[in-house]
Amino acid sequence: MSDLQELYQSVILDHNRKPRNFGPLDEASGTAEGKNPLCGDQVEVAVKLDGDVLSAVKFTGSGCAISKASASLMTTAVTGKSRAEVEALFDKFHALVTGRAAEADITKEALGQLIVFSSVSRFPIRVKCASLAWHTLRAALEDGGADAPVSTE
């Protein structure tokens, strides 16, 4: 596969075209907005916590295929996980897209479907696209009423 085919593999294109968990979330316990000022990507993430467990996550916004697919796959990966598990998964994902997965001993199994973003590390400009939704999710989980927008800059 060429670099481009790997970056834009079918799972990513599919989630770009038909994003999962896209839309407003009723009775959200936290929300946050994230922006990538460089290219204008914009995402809002809303979460519902059931105790310590993330029982629902939805997102809205607009952006490139990488940012949209990343937000979509993120929502499917984190739903039902505890806050600590979400944080741990973000660390693994971040290591993956910045090309540090091997040195951090992160296995394919630990990443699940998120492995489709492995080639992002070969496109350093796109790392911000892939991680925007995750940064925003983290802010939504910490949302206690402050609405400072998240920025990748």
Binding site: Y8, L38, C39, G40, D41, G63, C64, A65, I66, R126
Partner: peptide, 26 residues
Amino acid sequence: DVHPHDLATILDQHGVCIRAGHHCAQ
């Protein structure tokens, strides 16, 4: 169906340098 940022990446792989974004004109 193809976001400008994705276009820029694909074009770059073909040696074509274009700008994608808001062009400092939001």
